[in-house]
Nucleic acid binder design. Structure first.
Lengths: 198, 198
DNA sequence: TCGGTAACTTGTCAGTGGCAAGATTGCGCG
DNA sequence: CGCGCAATCTTGCCACTGACAAGTTACCGA
C-alpha cells in the first residue's frame, strides 16, 4: 500500500523496518532509538523521520505489518483451533519484535487505518477456528469461546516472552503450548445458572 | 525490608514510588521520566538516583511491591480457582502500573532477591487454587493445569489492558473475566486418549 | 535540458539518564 | 553539650535522544 520505491539509497524504508526488528529483539520496543536505526542503515540521523514522521509512525508501520503477518499465519493454519493456538504462540516467539509492538498501543497510532484493517483480518482468522468447532455441536457462545481461546494462547505467549514461566516447561514453545492449550483449566464453580443439582 | 526512614524531606522514597505509579498510569512504564518524578515530588532531578540508583532500580522496587501485593490479593481470595482468576484480572486493571512493570523484565532487574521472593509467593498462591481443585478428583497434571489457568487469566488481563478486546465485552473487568474464565475454550483434537464418546 | 520533487543531510534545541562533586541536615557519641 | 559524620539532597555537567527547520542531492518527466 504505502510502498515507497527506492530512490537514492535502495529501499531505505524496508531497511529501517528490518533494522527495527533486530534492534527491538535486542533491547525491546521501548528502548528503540531512531538514531541507532539510522546508524545501522548507514544514513543520517534524520532520515527515518522522512519515511515515518516520528517514532510512533515507524512503530505503526511495524504493528500493521505484524498484524498482517499474523493473519496470514493463522489463515494458513486452517480451522483447527488447537493448531491455531499453537501457531499464535509460535508467531509470538518467532516474530517477537512484531508481537511486542502490536500489543503496546501506547507506542504507536492504534487508530491507523492499515493497523485496524490488518487487525481485523487477524481477529477474523482467529475466530474462524472457534466457529468451525461450534458447528461440531457443543459450544453455545462463540463470542465467549473465542475470547477464552484467544486469552489462553495470548497469555501463554506473553508469559513465555516475559520469561515468567517456570523452567520445567522446557525450551520448545510449540510443544509446551500444545500441552497447555490442549488441556484447558478445569472449572470449579459452575456458571451462575442452576446449581449442579441436575 | 529496605525501609528508608524519612530524613529531610519526608519519606521521599515512598513519594517517588507513588508518583511513579501515577506517571506510569498516564504514559506507560517506558515513557517514565525520573526527572518528572522528581518534579512531582518537589525535589531536584538527581534525588531519585540516590534512593534507587537508576531507573531500573526504581522499577525493580515497583515490581517487587507489585508481586507482593498480587500475592496478598490472591492469598486473601482463598482456594476458589475461578475467584482467583477474577482477582488476578481485577488486580491487573486496578493496579495497572504495577502489573505492567511486573511483566516487562527488560525494564528492571528481574534477578533482584526481593523480586524473586515476592514472585515466588504470588506463584504459590496462584498454584494453590489448582491443587485444591485437583483433590476434587478430575485433574491429573497440576503443573499443566496451573499453567493453563495462569495463561487464560493473564491473557485476558493483558488483552484488556492493551485495549485489544472488542467493545462487546463491556467495561466491567470482573464480570467479563468471570464469563470468560468460567468457560474455558473447547478442545477439538482430544488428547491422545479415547475420543469424547462418553 | 531544465524545473520540480522526492530523498536525504546538516544543524539545532529541549529533554533525559547518569555521574561527580558539593552543600545541608540531623543523629550518634564522646 | 557539641562535634564528627553519614545520610540526604542539590548543582553542574556530559552524552544521547526525538523532533524540527533549512539546506543539498539525485532522479524523473516534460
Amino acid at each position: 500500500m504505502t510502498e515507497t520505491r527506492a530512490y537514492h539509497h535502495g529501499d531505505l524504508r524496508r531497511a529501517l523496518l528490518a533494522a527495527a526488528v533486530v534492534a527491538i529483539e535486542e533491547v525491546g520496543p521501548a528502548a528503540l532509538s531512531l538514531r541507532d536505526l539510522a546508524r545501522r542503515a548507514g544514513v543520517s540521523h534524520a532520515a527515518p523521520a522522512h519515511h515515518f514522521g516520528d517514532k510512533a509512525g515507524l512503530l505503526t508501520a511495524l504493528a500493521a505489518e505484524g498484524f498482517d503477518r499474523l493473519a496470514q499465519t493463522l489463515t494458513a493454519t486452517g480451522d483447527d483451533l488447537l493448531e491455531a493456538g499453537v501457531a499464535y504462540v509460535d508467531f509470538a516467539v518467532t516474530h517477537r519484535a512484531y508481537f511486542e509492538v502490536m500489543f503496546r498501543p501506547e507506542l504507536y497510532r492504534a487508530d491507523d487505518a492499515e493497523v485496524i484493517a490488518a487487525r481485523g483480518r487477524a481477529s477474523a482468522a482467529l475466530r474462524s477456528g472457534v466457529v468451525a468447532l461450534s458447528t461440531g455441536g457443543a459450544p453455545a457462545d462463540p463470542d465467549r469461546d473465542s475470547l477464552a481461546a484467544w486469552s489462553i494462547a495470548h497469555g501463554f505467549a506473553t508469559l513465555w516472552l516475559a520469561g515468567a514461566l517456570p523452567a520445567r516447561v522446557g525450551d520448545n514453545p510449540r510443544e509446551a503450548a500444545r500441552a497447555v492449550l490442549s488441556r484447558p483449566p478445569p472449572t470449579n464453580t459452575p456458571p451462575p445458572s442452576p446449581p449442579p443439582a441436575r
